[in-house]
Design a binder for these strands. Sequence first.
RNA 1: UGCCCUUUAGUGUAAUUGGUUAACACGUCUGACUCUGGAUCAGAAGAGUCUAGGUUCGAGUCCUAGAAGGGCAACCA
Length: 563
Amino acid sequence: MENTENTKPLNFIEEIVEEDLRTGKNDNRIHTRFPPEPNGYLHIGHAKAICLSFGIAQKYKGKCNLRFDDTNPVTEDVEYVDSIREDIQWLGFNWEGEAHYASDYFEQLFAWAVMLIRKGKAYVDETSAEDISAERGVPTQPGKESMYRNRSVEENLDIFMQMKNGEFPDGTKVLRAKIDMTSPNMHMRDPVLYRIKHAHHHRTGDKWCIYPMYDWAHGQSDYIEGITHSLCTLEFEVHRPLYDWCLDQIADGSYRPRQIEFARLNLNYTVMSKRRLLQLVNEGYVSGWDDPRMPTICGLRRRGYTPESLRNFAEAVGIAKRENVIELTLLEHCLREHLNKIARRVMVVSNPVKVLIENYPDGKVEIMQAENNPEDENAGMRDLPFSREIYIERDDFMEDPPKKFFRLSPGNEVRLKNGYIIQCTGADKDPATGEIKQIRCTYDPTTRSGLEGANRKVKATIHWVSAHHAIDVEVRLYDRLFATPDPDVVEEGKDWKSNLNPASLTIIVAKAEPSLATAKPEEKYQFQRTGYFCVDKDSTASKLILNRTVTLKDDWAKIAGRG
RNA sequence: UGCCCUUUAGUGUAAUUGGUUAACACGUCUGACUCUGGAUCAGAAGAGUCUAGGUUCGAGUCCUAGAAGGGCAACCA
């Protein structure tokens, strides 16, 4: 066990960590952090990042902090803080100690800013936002120094204090680092460190009216918390020189956090940006952040995903620096792999057609025994009522079947799972429409499941429910959110939303075996031969609602699909 | 036309750090088995590593020059 762990190839971040451990860097401490901004819900891309940072800490006996990057009070809210904490814990991770907040460090950050000014490395700029932007230049051309760049230390200090004391309106002044307006890296062209925002902060209230920018807060927060490996996504790569510059101003040399970037997760048939997810919610394309079609952690949870399956997925996709688009089939594979082991099997007929077993005594009811999960010996058995009239799937009968169709058809035999072998004697049709109203069969009493006679080879086994005992349940058949793998590929004049899958949700009423009546929200079931389902939180005692998490693999659908 | 990053089967990730015939997973295709056309098992196809040069006994790994894709110009993170 220990051995397989050691021989598994390391990703490039683990290699860096192991090298640091070899050389004794930072006293051999390994301390990571997950730093969400509380301005939205976490999605599966964050799940990858969470598994990485918490996973590295676990693997190397280190620690992982949760730190809310709450430096922008106008977009942030406690609602998000709470959902983020819940999602991380649901995923199965525990952060070190209490959750941290960048806002915990506002005082220290301010003190360091004052120190910067004293060293002549920061200045207050009164240029307007537009002009600062213009003066910054463009990537291909150097910027121009601000006319306020060379104020005296005293003047800077004085105005900065006034900024802090709320003497200026929003947007009138900023504190800027004095670095290099000609740098080929835009982020080094005197980046803004503080801006004025007379806004109520979800934690510090009205104490502050100046707030630090990400670049001034993040590395410093890492330093304060003793973070050794600060893992983030690729778009922060260009920030790294600034991250290091900021640390240079405060670090004493005995310890040093390091920022390492990796490629974010992309999944086909969905979108991942906060902006787009928000748009789907606001414009009513989905029912909310936890709509089971959303790639949010709470959405996946409601859909029926398990923390294990998500963690296995994060492991399977790996960590590297190149842009990637993971196939949804890999996610679904990880899901099925886990659900197969834990989901109780039940029989539910989603598109019912009645079958009359002509030679079965009217009014008789037998109780059949069914395995709850053949993959789990401890899952036990359950009772299943059987009677003269049952429902089977309409698709499991064909009047005029093609060669490879093994199920019910006139004259043909089929096994009823955990029941009897039946033979079709005919079907009654609506003379006007040709629709099958009822299928007629006979059963062989010696073939009851468990009896000697049941050992006969039969081509197919189908699921069923007793018509009189079945309960009606609402089933929400979810499919992929987008109809095309890359939602950005669109016709002229259309946008990504035109690729939304119109069939991503179909609601039906199905006939379920009676044992399902006591099912509770979040419980996972396998509807035999159909798929995995999860009881929705909207369920009530009188109305059971199940979400289709994912279908079972269906070889017949492939064969039939080929024509 | 500045800087930074990336480039290995359809999709991801590896390759003992310069060493045999480039591996694993998902997907695809066969077949076996099955009281779930599920699961499981067995097998197959599929890349010669972005291109062109070079170094070397030997290059996916090193060098040179290109190409392609991505990122950077918020008082967002």
